[in-house]
Design a protein around this nucleic acid. Sequence first.
DNA 1: GCCATAACGGTACTCCGGTTCCATTAGTTG
DNA 2: CAACTAATGGAACCGGAGTACCGTTATGGC
Lengths: 210, 210
Amino acid sequence: MASEAAKETANPGSVRPGGRTARVRSAVLRAAGDALAEHGLAGLDLADVARRAEVGRTTVYRRWGNPVALVADLLVEMAEQSLPRTETGTLAGDLRANARLVRRTLADPRQGPLFKAVIAAATCDSRAAAALHRFYETRVDEWAPCARQAVERGELPPGTDAREVIRAVSAPLYYRLLTTAEPLDEAAADRAADAAAAAARAGAFVTTAE
Amino acid sequence: MASEAAKETANPGSVRPGGRTARVRSAVLRAAGDALAEHGLAGLDLADVARRAEVGRTTVYRRWGNPVALVADLLVEMAEQSLPRTETGTLAGDLRANARLVRRTLADPRQGPLFKAVIAAATCDSRAAAALHRFYETRVDEWAPCARQAVERGELPPGTDAREVIRAVSAPLYYRLLTTAEPLDEAAADRAADAAAAAARAGAFVTTAE
DNA sequence: GCCATAACGGTACTCCGGTTCCATTAGTTG
DNA sequence: CAACTAATGGAACCGGAGTACCGTTATGGC
């Protein structure tokens, strides 16, 4: 009896997710990414996004409603498409590869501003924050195995928290991106990787018992 | 001849910076801090700030104009008041003290959200970004001596970049704050300090020649 | 291929964030 | 302490962001 009363008005796009709806979504998300990269989160105007996506203004307001909700959806999309990791055989090599990949992303003229905007959105809205956390969770999980293998190889002490090692590589790069005016060059990436490797070897990421 | 043509309309508050003007500024900045801590950057409404500060709506719009400009000014204020650092006599001790101070700040129910908001603002506006960079520059400079002393003591290799060591302590804490849902506990702070110390001892922050 | 309806998109409207105007208050200067 | 004017703040105003309405399109089930 509750069949039509229960769902009320489930978000548009959830009942007929194929065809046009999917096309609209991807066009809007792409446009939103462009707009974010250009003007940042504060300059994100839904009407402008609709224009760029060649989609009705009404549609964007109905399906997303506000800028941060749109960013949250963009993050879900971004989390889905992860790029493969490279394996070099040594911890130092793997971490450098990771650091350089992160650096290249953050220094990219489109991706860099986009990541900044997405982080800003996460600080404003808990749904966006959850989406961002998920995004980084998948990214870290993708690379954690290289630290785990280093433990097996004997390069790192047993009990080392593999995910924490990977996070230690990214952290200085994000910190530099957000809090300094200095450029994110390859030297900074290598330094971040080397520092993480050194700290890991010294046992800084060994989880004590628990 | 250019005496009155040159300045045009210098921002209100710059000609008579004393008395009431200063009082209004500090009331507005305090109110802005409260509002940011509560609703985040996206929820920052200038009219609301004016109400909290018991100041005319017009005044806030005239002197700051938009949310990010207000945040930028707030950052200038925050940069001025730096808290003194404690000295323990060893690198490990000093870095732990620093890490715990940073952690306490970021975990604070008012300061934490405020810092998030301020970082978000910096990603939206270059003036806010410049103010944020200045803020961290002064904070890092405040603590860099402890790494410099460690070099003199022989705890760290010569040529170590002291400021980079301090940044390495904060980086994982900010990274965790922004990209994960995990809490910022004291263990995380100590781990950050230990990792930075280990990396520094291993020479990860030695600036090669130049 | 046909029907029911989810989802889109144009138009008209509303409401409030932001501005303008001007009278009032209070620093600052001589 | 008097005159000058920067700065404030109330009130009226304006424009555009966001909403409501409804006809049109095309998806998904049969």
